[in-house]
Nucleic acid binder design. Structure first.
Lengths: 212, 212
DNA sequence: TCATAAACTGAAGTATCCTTCAGCTTTGAG
DNA sequence: CTCAAAGCTGAAGGATACTTCAGTTTATGA
């Protein structure tokens, strides 16, 4: 599962090299979790991956590139799970679809919660706003698309605003759940679904109306 | 507005020194926004504050201490605004109270959005989970207290869960708004209020019920 | 006014870290 | 089997950052 987004560096051609790249990305994940971004040194990553520093620099031009590769892998995983549920041809009520997507998302995040947290913080520090915009564009786009599949229920709702609010609200709540170790709380899915559906229901009234 | 949480270092006694400490904290904010945490060097901060490095080390034992001091100032500002609205003796409907608090929160964040973002990312990298827990404990505590003031509307609702979900959902949505520069969108308050109230309404049904 | 404490300076020591590259090892096609 | 390409090694160069502290300047109060 290597990503082809390191333009200036060599691409692995042999199987051994592909394994090396994978090991480096995984090592990055481990070091990031255990020592944080400050402790993410090229030597340490190489060591953990069982190769020498020079090898690292054959495939990654930078510490940042290493982190970005890791992020690409994880994003694909998280997004893939979501997209699968979003595209599930089985017709579903809006509630069902929301719950399924939430479950898929929670499943991915639950696999390595500390990594999710550490990686997010690092990408934030690394690419700041552009990182956020990229992730948000993808995720919100998907959510928006799903919402568009329920035109009757959401008549008059600003789908862009709804996608933004709902997506990031869920993300914030999940982040908090991770930080406090409540990711396994069985009520979580129900609570998040209630949050999303509670917003969507009656969201048509939002646009101009604003009580003082 | 200096904080007394640098145990090992000297406390400023004269007015000049207090001004120096303030200047250092403000310089930290500026450097953090313009160069990120990676670019936050002690020399650069001192330079920007108009003092020498040695002076910095008289009051702050560490780069981290500098950031923590800045965070303390900002947290107090944000929390103060919220608490003021929360404790406002004027009786209000739940909707009004929520809207007022959201407005107060958005006001603080709007002052220096990039700083809010950068500081959050940095604290995340610096103190990770313990930072989140601290902030969440404070904020959720406040929110929980506010919610407890509306026992009829929220009968049967798990206030702890509600405070956590609502608080962090709002935080996530605001974070996204900051990143995309939509903080001034006039519909934002209404949308967030709708999010919060939509969750609270009927949240009593959450505990055990969980549709498959 | 003067002495003492507080505050400030900034060059220098120490510690890492990033990154390269010349040479060695492994792979795989012919 | 042979050899050119791919892959790997790790010591060393170069750069920067953190932190200290001996010495200087400024404030205070007796």
């Amino acid at each position: 599962m290597f990503i082809q987004s390191e333009p200036q560096r060599k691409m692995p051609r042999q199987a051994r090299a592909r394994a090396t790249v994978d090991a480096l990305v995984e090592a990055t994940a481990q070091v990031l979790v255990t020592r944080g971004f400050a402790g993410l040194t090229t030597t340490r990553v190489a060591e953990r991956a069982g190769v020498s520093v020079g090898t690292l620099y054959q495939y990654f031009s930078d510490k940042a590139e290493l982190v970005r590769a890791l992020h690409a892998v994880r994003l694909e995983a998280a997004f893939g799970g979501l997209a699968a549920q979003a595209a599930d041809p089985e017709p579903r009520t809006m509630r069902e679809r929301v719950e399924h997507m939430l479950r898929a998302l929670l499943e991915v995040k639950s696999e390595r919660p500390e990594l999710s947290m550490a990686l997010h913080a690092t990408m934030m520090e690394l690419d700041g706003p552009s990182y956020l915009r990229q992730v948000m564009a993808q995720t919100q786009g998907l959510v928006r698309q799903v919402l568009a599949g329920y035109p009757e229920e959401l008549e008059g709702v600003d789908l862009d605003l709804a996608a933004m609010v709902v997506t990031n609200a869920v993300d914030g709540a999940i982040g908090a759940a991770i930080a406090t170790g409540r990711l396994e709380d069985p009520r979580l899915v129900a609570a998040l679904a209630h949050l999303v559906l509670g917003y969507l229901e009656g969201a048509a009234a939002i646009p101009a109306a604003s009580a003082s």
